[in-house]
Design a protein around this nucleic acid. Structure first.
Length: 479
RNA sequence: CGGGGUGUAGCUCAGUUUGGUAGAGCGCUUGGUUCGGGACCAAGAGGCCGAAGGUUCAAGUCCUUUCACUCCGACCA
């Protein structure tokens, strides 16, 4: 047990200080390194590999649904950014500006993109002439910059990586359908791939994207009961098209504005993974995005035949999962703890005893369970085991959310729960922003979304003003 | 942006009160013994003490400025 203690000393307990726990994991697991630029980190190979798996899986799903990848410039001229009033007001406080090129001051300063709606609009104005040009289904993988005041690796950094989809459609119905199709795609990705349950819903007007007609989001609960927005999808109507004068000729030879959407997920998803699945032993990665899905740990590797058996096993398993042999000269105990800390879903122990019996010992990261299995069955067992783990991790996260979710009728009920723990609250709401704000002021929880799953009852009333409720709204503290 | 904390070896920190030769543990390198939950012995390498100014015979230590990290709030993917 003294060994366990030593292992845990590196990582602050999550019950003691969740914020410090998060920072410890990010550093200890080798996901990021800090730099001399505030709010900008090095994403280290292990962290970047997670992002690459997220990219790979999402990208193929975007392409399956007809989207094409493009790349637009890093810089946006000030005049272009200013074309849509709500949009610029929303983003102005957090944009970085380039004012000089070489030795010369620029006549018009350039904003480093915080998001690319304006650039896409400029391009679409040229690219779209006819109804035959629609829909336009573009996506780009890139970095964006937002000059945040307080920063945290993955959760809030000044530069972050993301994908931003921007689409144009002939009708509001088509555009709305696209907006919701992507929201579903995101939700499915989070739940099936990242093993992270999410709640789909629409943002209240006060929480909408700058310039959007409707913003939809998926909200996930972190282990400490706080909410994290894991992805957003916006419906713009024809607002941007009008501001940027994008028109096309319809089948009936009439001039019309197209309807537009945008949607994105970011490297924040890595933060979400950490805070959803991690524990006091470290990171805990969902198998589908884990850079290493199974690590082989030789026991008594100096003994005749052990290392050879491990290498043979590694070769054999390569075709069924991402497997890695740790043949370093650290002790087995050290390796157990290290790979646990890095969140490797499955550990395969192989020592002289096992080799003799034709067995090996599996360690399951998320549950701590150990299983002894026949070595020659591993190829068959592993893929199914990885799926089982994904499901198990999802169930565990869902259980945490269920245990921390309350439907309440009064603000006092919220206060009572918050004394114990952070949680999700379903609150009936009259749709008056003043009441939404009052709930936040009085309890500390803010509106996250109006979930698609509504169980409003006729008798439900807004706990602030007492008027009849129009929606049940999800409230929570948020990252 | 408000309030706390911290910058000294790759990491965690001591040394700062009272100015006087740059320290420890871990990690790293080499050799050897170990190996079923963070092993051990020996020998080594590693620093303009976050940065810039100032005070002083002398600054990690005192003064000024600034940058970054971190935690808690307000705002945000």
């Amino acid at each position: 047990m003294s060994n366990d203690k030593k292992a845990i000393e590196k990582i602050t307990s999550m019950d003691e200080d969740f914020g410090q726990w998060y920072t410890d994991i990010v550093k200890q697991a080798g996901l990021v390194d800090y730099t001399s630029v505030k709010g900008c980190v090095v994403i280290c190979p292990y962290g970047y590999a997670i992002w690459e798996h997220i990219q790979r899986i999402l990208d193929s799903r975007f392409k399956e649904t007809g989207h094409e990848n493009v790349y637009l410039p890093l810089f946006i001229p000030e005049g272009l950014l200013n074309r849509e009033k709500d949009h610029v007001e929303g983003f102005a406080p957090e944009v970085a500006w380039v004012t000089q090129g070489g030795a010369e001051e620029l006549t018009e300063r350039l904003c480093v993109r915080p998001t690319s709606e304006t650039l896409f609009c400029e391009h679409y104005k040229n690219a779209v002439q006819s109804w035959r040009d629609l829909p336009k289904l573009y996506n780009q993988w890139c970095n964006v910059v937002r000059w945040e005041k307080t920063t945290r690796p993955f959760l809030r950094s000044r530069e972050f990586l993301w994908q931003e989809g921007h689409t144009l459609h002939a009708t509001p119905e088509e555009a709305t359908e696209e907006t919701l199709r992507i929201l579903d795609l995101y939700a499915d990705f989070c739940e099936k791939v990242l093993a992270m349950p999410v709640i789909r819903g629409r943002k209240t007007d006060s929480d909408k994207f700058a310039g959007a007609e409707a913003t939809y989001a998926i909200e996930a609960m972190m282990h400490d009961g706080k909410a994290l927005q894991a992805g957003t999808s916006h419906y713009f109507g024809d607002g941007f098209a009008r501001a940027f004068d994008i028109t096309y000729t319809t089948k009936e030879n009439k001039l019309a504005h197209p309807y537009q959407t945008s949607w994105g997920v970011t490297t924040r998803l890595i933060g979400a993974i950490i805070m959803t699945h991690g524990d006091d032993r470290g990171l805990n990665l969902p198998p589908m995005v884990a850079p290493v899905q199974a690590v082989i740990i030789p026991v008594a590797q100096h003994k005749e035949g052990v290392l050879d058996a491990c290498k043979a096993l590694e070769e054999k398993l390569k075709s069924v999962c991402r497997v890695k042999l740790d043949a370093s000269d650290n002790s087995p105990g050290w390796k157990f703890a290290e790979h646990e800390m890095r969140g490797v879903p499955v550990r395969i122990e192989l020592g002289p005893r096992d080799i003799e019996n034709g067995e090996c010992v599996l360690g399951i990261r998320y549950s701590g369970e150990k299983r002894t299995v026949k070595s020659d069955e591993l190829e068959r067992i592993l893929p199914a085991l990885l799926d089982e783990i994904t499901q198990g991790m999802f169930d565990k996260a869902l259980e945490n959310r269920t245990n921390r979710t309350y439907s309440v009728k009064t603000l006092d009920e919220i206060d009572a729960v918050l004394k114990e723990k952070d949680a999700f609250f379903y609150i009936p709401w009259c749709e008056d922003p003043a009441c939404e704000n009052a709930i936040k002021e009085q309890t500390g929880v803010g509106s996250r979304c109006i979930p698609f799953d509504q169980h409003a009852q006729e008798t439900d009333v807004c706990p602030v003003c007492g008027k009849k409720a129009k929606h049940i709204v999800l409230f929570a503290k948020a990252y």
